[in-house]
Design a binder for these strands. Sequence first.
DNA 1: GCACGGTCCTTGACACGACAACTGATCCCA
DNA 2: TGGGATCAGTTGTCGTGTCAAGGACCGTGC
Lengths: 160, 160
Amino acid sequence: MTEPRWLDETQLDAWKRLVSVVELLPGVLDSQLRRDAGLSHFEYYVLAMLSEAPDRSLRMTRLAAKTDATLPRLSHVVARLEERGLVERLPSADDRRVTNAHLTDAGWDKIVATAPGHVETVRTHVVDPLTDEEIGQLDTIAGKILERLDPENRTGVRRT
Amino acid sequence: MTEPRWLDETQLDAWKRLVSVVELLPGVLDSQLRRDAGLSHFEYYVLAMLSEAPDRSLRMTRLAAKTDATLPRLSHVVARLEERGLVERLPSADDRRVTNAHLTDAGWDKIVATAPGHVETVRTHVVDPLTDEEIGQLDTIAGKILERLDPENRTGVRRT
DNA sequence: GCACGGTCCTTGACACGACAACTGATCCCA
DNA sequence: TGGGATCAGTTGTCGTGTCAAGGACCGTGC
């Protein structure tokens, strides 16, 4: 066993703050969306990714990648969203293993109605307190971390 | 209802990357610790905060603040850690409402044994890919976000 | 044409966090 | 000195994620 390379104080401070953000941010997003729209942040994100996709539909695997979710997790969530009429699942004709998740009109309306309030929350808690320069730094830093967290770059959120 | 102020492309990119980090990081930390030590990251963090505290003990409320957890959550987790002999709960003499969580010797041994591997994971995924300058930026940025997420500054991780 | 490995997705069982309700203890002020 | 408000923590229930297993389908080798 090699000698551990401990973190210096600066590194530890930054790390602890990142941990706090990671612990607290989901709760804040969830409670705003839950209150205003009856959606978890993850559900919202699923709808949002579909709304941006061509034909408002994506196959499950691709949607899972875009939302950083495991397939079982996505499957459960989409099942619930389907029960609520926000999404429908359509078996693909070419490859009958694949399921396409498609945003319904009700789902589209839902996200259109929900987006402004959510964006406002994101602004309040993340975007507005930062300068333009810091936004750029955040982009770079998060990008570098993602390269390690997700080397496959499944999400396609990273350019490099 | 006022017109929503949408995010520009740069802001949206940075936001999406932050969301990805927030979604992926906990899973990576959890699986390493689960595999190597049979602990969730949150359990590890609880033990770590206790190990740094005077007398290796903290009252539940303070510990909850330091770990960014709600009291019910902490209560459940400490109950489990107590069953495993890593922590013990001692009622306070001065204020009989208060419970002090105290790290046992077994708990101390556990974290001493676990820390090097965990630090290595943190290095690999977060610290090492960033320059010293970026570590400083991350500290600043996370600090500003925390000011909004947690205005009470319960954790005491923030200086300002 | 069929078997076998790999892919895509679903399902069920279990673990953990959130929320609300509750117990006990302390504080405060009449 | 009592009674209401507040505080510290615990407990129970429910929703949701994870993990392991399984089912359906594809594609290649023979």
